[in-house]
Design a protein around this nucleic acid. Structure first.
Length: 498
RNA sequence: UCCGGCGUAGCUCAAUGGUAGAGCGGGUGGCUGUUAACCACUAGGUUGUAGGUUCGAGCCCUACCGCCGGAGCCA
């Protein structure tokens, strides 16, 4: 007797095997029972006929999410979702589950988040988490293959690398320290020892942001590259992104399809990616091209809204003709989701009206907000690099541009389809006096940074790096509306459990 | 922090200021190929909390709590 995983069940066609897992669904019809077993590798429909009296009786005792061991014969069958079925001859119960709170019907987000530990078992969530794994492996694989050394940077840190207002304080034996918001400063040190390095770990931001793009705890992969200039940084960002796209598309066709992700926009992405300087981006925002695009986009949305309202009217009508209670319920559910869609489109349209005035009125020197990012990235069907932001809106360690001292040598990479910033990076300021001057401008006390400044005292070199936000990347690849589904246990403003 | 919306059965939601309901899920029974199966029966409620208005409040008013959406903030 062989034990098999569901994903490899087809290899045992005709043979007798044992599979172990959880009951994810059960249907019955007279003298036949259909058990859908889930084992983490896949789902399999298992048939129990009354002729196997023991198994048949046991099948009736299984509740949703009960764990069990099934023995039976593997039979390829087109009627089965996975292509294979198991004709069950024996059932061993491991545990009879209590009434499972998550049904196959609709649930609200609050309920699902409160049951995140169980919600993870649903097919959509497992698909997302598998893709997350592939993205992390691809990103790390890219740097591993390119000869980078993995460096683990500390999570407990004495001070701020970015704005101090967004740090989580921790009581460290009576001293206030902070959770890391980047590994960068430490990574720069390691870079001077080992050459090209990268870190991968959690980072923490105490921003009171309640948006679909923010978590208070999220994961970043950050390379730091010796003797680099901006084109080198962009090259690595581009190649890493391409590698991630390739691996996700190669290994997750089914997962992406199961969550309704249209892969065409992902497949269309090939290097090179477009590049704009900040100044060019501001000009683009002011341009006739963007103005007419915004108008066209607004018209599109209004058309969608009209269509959606029409659909809503039809749904209301079908509610009137529904006979069965469940048909009525279904129609009501459809109406609710359409109403939600209408509301979404209405706020979208309102935002776009603001966009039009905001874009033309955008002043050089301001940082781009979500709106500007969205407009810019929507002009391209590939990720967009924006480089050379004004010094004032960027961090102290970014290298000043030699030709134009108003801007720094930085880059953001904005994902297409409105997903916004997924990568931020820069060349680091490598001159001690310039760095000190910059810290003074920011009212920073150089004392706690002496160790960091040492890197500019003992063999300073040009170098730079960037950070890729894992959750935003997962959200983009999966086509999700919110990053809360991209991490197993999201930490959000006002949500800590489970 | 600000603006808006919501809070009713385990879940998703109904209910002109006038007897709290449906579907799903649970339970019981039926059906030999089901795909969110279906059919019948059944149990299940301090309407977020605390006040107020009213003959009467799930519904109106006030405060608070919670969640959602958006803004601000944000490598």
């Amino acid at each position: 007797m062989q034990t098999a995983t569901i994903s490899r069940l087809h290899e045992h066609a005709g043979g007798e095997v044992t599979i172990r897992g959880w009951l994810s669904a059960k249907r019955s019809s007279g003298k036949i029972r259909f058990l859908i077993l889930r084992d983490g590798t896949g789902q399999c429909q298992c048939i129990v006929e009354a002729s196997h009296a023991d198994a048949f009786e046991t099948a009736d005792r299984l509740t949703l999410e009960s764990s069990c061991i099934l023995t039976g014969t593997v039979r390829p069958d087109d009627r089965a979702p996975g292509g294979c079925e198991l004709d069950v001859t024996g059932i061993e119960i491991l545990h009879i589950a209590e009434e499972y709170p998550i049904s196959r019907k609709a649930h609200g987000i609050d309920f699902l988040m409160n049951h995140r530990h169980l919600w993870l078992r649903s097919p959509r969530q497992t698909a997302i988490l598998r893709i997350r794994h592939t993205i992390i492996r691809a990103a790390r694989g890219y740097f591993d293959d390119a000869g980078f050394t993995l460096i683990d940077t500390p999570i407990l840190q004495p001070g701020a690398a970015e704005g101090a207002a967004t740090l989580f304080p921790v009581d460290y034996f009576g001293e206030e320290v902070y959770l890391a918001q980047t590994g960068q400063l430490y990574l720069e040190s390691a870079c001077m020892a080992l050459g090209n390095v990268y870190c991968f770990g959690p980072t923490f931001r105490a921003e009171k942001s309640k948006t679909r793009r923010h978590l208070t705890e999220f994961w970043m992969i950050e390379p730091e590259i010796t003797f680099a200039d901006l084109p080198v940084l962009r090259h690595h960002a581009e190649q890493m992104t391409t590698r991630i796209l390739r691996d996700v598309l190669e290994h997750h066709r089914d997962d992406l399809a199961s969550m309704g992700r249209d892969t065409a926009p992902l497949e269309a992405i090939t290097p090179p990616f477009p590049v704009l300087t900040y100044t060019e981006a501001v000009d683009l925002l002011h341009s006739e091209k963007v103005r007419s695009w915004l108008e066209g986009d607004l018209a599109d949305k209004e058309k969608q809204l009209a269509a959606c309202r029409e659909e809503l009217a039809e749904a209301v009508e079908s509610l009137g003709t529904a006979k069965k209670a469940w048909q009525k319920e279904k129609a009501e559910q459809q109406i609710r989701s359409l109403e939600e869609h209408v509301r979404e489109l209405e706020t979208d349209i309102e935002h776009r009206r603001h966009h039009m005035s905001d874009a033309s009125a955008f002043e050089w020197g301001r940082d781009f907000g979500g709106d500007e990012e969205t407009i810019l990235s929507r002009q391209f069907d590939k990720p967009l690099f924006v480089t050379g932001y004004p010094r004032e809106v960027k961090a102290f360690y970014m290298k000043r541009n030699g030709q134009d001292p108003r801007v720094v040598e930085n880059m953001d990479m904005l994902a297409p389809e409105g997903y916004g910033e997924v990568i931020g990076g820069s060349i680091r300021e490598d001159q001690l006096d310039v760095l000190l001057e910059r810290m003074k401008e920011e009212n920073m006390d150089p004392e706690p940074y002496q160790w960091y400044l040492d890197l500019r005292r003992y063999g300073s070199i040009p170098h730079g790096g960037f950070g890729l936000g894992i959750e935003r990347t997962v959200s983009w690849m999966c086509g999700l509306k919110h990053v809360r589904e991209t991490i197993p246990f999201p930490r959000l403003l006002g949500r800590m459990t489970p």
